[in-house]
C-alpha cells in the first residue's frame, strides 16, 4: 500500500487556543480512515488544516508525495483532494446542477466530466429530480448527498468528510454511510471525521481517536470497536 497522505506534528492555533497540539497520522491509498472524538477535540481543525482552509502553526502535510503545507485551498483542491466541510457547505442560491458544474470548473477532461455527471445522477436519483432547484431548498439528507456528489465531481481521488451524519435522521445516516462505502469501493480514499463513533468505526478500515487536540489511540477500526476504553468513552458503553 502506498501512503497517499502523511501528516506530521500538525499544530493549529486559534488566538490563544491550541486546537491541535502536534498530531501525526497517515492514510493509505484506497482506505477509509476515521478520526473520532468529542466536540472540540480538534477533528474539524484537522480537516481544515489539511485542505488549506486554516494555516497550521507548525507541522507538515504531505499529499501524494508533495508538501502541501500552507498551500491555499483552491490549489490543494486541484490536486485531487476534496473537502466536504462541516454543515455541508451548500451554495444555497445555486441550483443543484450549478453546484455540480461549479465543482468541475478546473477540469480539462471534458468527456470524463460528462460521464461523471451521469454517474452522479445515477447514484443520486433524487439530485437528478431536483436538478433545477436551489440547493437551499433541499432537505438535510439531500444536501449531504449533493455535498458528496459535488466532491466527486471535482474529480478528486481523496475525500475529506466532516461529520456527514450531522443533524440527519438515523435512516438517512445509514444511507449516507452506504454511499461512503460505495464510493470507497469505487476507488476513492476517504478521511472521515465523526462524532457518531459507532457508525464511523463500522465503516472505516482504520481509526484515530482524538482528544483535546492530541491523538489518544489508533488502530484497526475493528479492534477499536471492542477496546474497553473506547467503548466506555465513545460508544456509550455498549
Amino acid at each position: 500500500m502506498t501512503k497517499i497522505m502523511e501528516i506530521e506534528n500538525l499544530e493549529v492555533v486559534y488566538g490563544v487556543i491550541k486546537a491541535l497540539q502536534g498530531i501525526s497520522f497517515y492514510i493509505d491509498e484506497g482506505e477509509i480512515v476515521t478520526i473520532i472524538g468529542a466536540n472540540g477535540a480538534g477533528k474539524s481543525s484537522t480537516l481544515r488544516a489539511v485542505s488549506g482552509m486554516v494555516r497550521p502553526s507548525s507541522g507538515k502535510i504531505r499529499f501524494k508525495d508533495k508538501d502541501v503545507t500552507n498551500t491555499p485551498s483552491h490549489i490543494i483542491a486541484r490536486q485531487g483532494l476534496s473537502h466536504v466541510p462541516e454543515g455541508r457547505g451548500m451554495l444555497t442560491k445555486l441550483t443543484v446542477e450549478e453546484n455540480l458544474i461549479l465543482a468541475t470548473y478546473n477540469r480539462k477532461d471534458h468527456s470524463q466530466v460528462k460521464e461523471d455527471m451521469k454517474n452522479v445522477y445515477d447514484q443520486f436519483p433524487r439530485l437528478s429530480e431536483r436538478k433545477r432547484q436551489a440547493a437551499g431548498n433541499l432537505s438535510g439528507g439531500e444536501q449531504q448527498m449533493l455535498a458528496i456528489a459535488r466532491a466527486l465531481m471535482t474529480g478528486a481521488d481523496t475525500l475529506l468528510l466532516d461529520e456527514p451524519s450531522m443533524g440527519l435522521a438515523p435512516l438517512i445516516v445509514q444511507e449516507i454511510f452506504a454511499v461512503i462505502k460505495r464510493i470507497n469501493q469505487a476507488g476513492k480514499t476517504i478521511l472521515l471525521v465523526e462524532q457518531n463513533a459507532m457508525t464511523a468505526l463500522r465503516t472505516a478500515n482504520r481509526a484515530y481517536i482524538l482528544e483535546n487536540g492530541t491523538l489518544l489511540k489508533s488502530g484497526k477500526a475493528s479492534d477499536l470497536i471492542s477496546d474497553p476504553e473506547v467503548k466506555a468513552a465513545y460508544l456509550g458503553g455498549y
Binding site: S51, M53, H74, L91, L102, Y105
Partner: peptide, 21 residues
C-alpha cells in the same frame, strides 16, 4: 461556467475555494 463561479464566490468564498475556485 465562469458566471457560476462568480455567484458561488459571492455566496461563500471558502466553499468556492474548496471547489478549486
Amino acid at each position: 461556467k465562469t458566471g457560476i463561479t462568480i455567484r458561488a464566490a459571492a455566496e461563500n468564498k471558502t466553499v468556492a475555494g474548496l471547489m478549486g475556485i
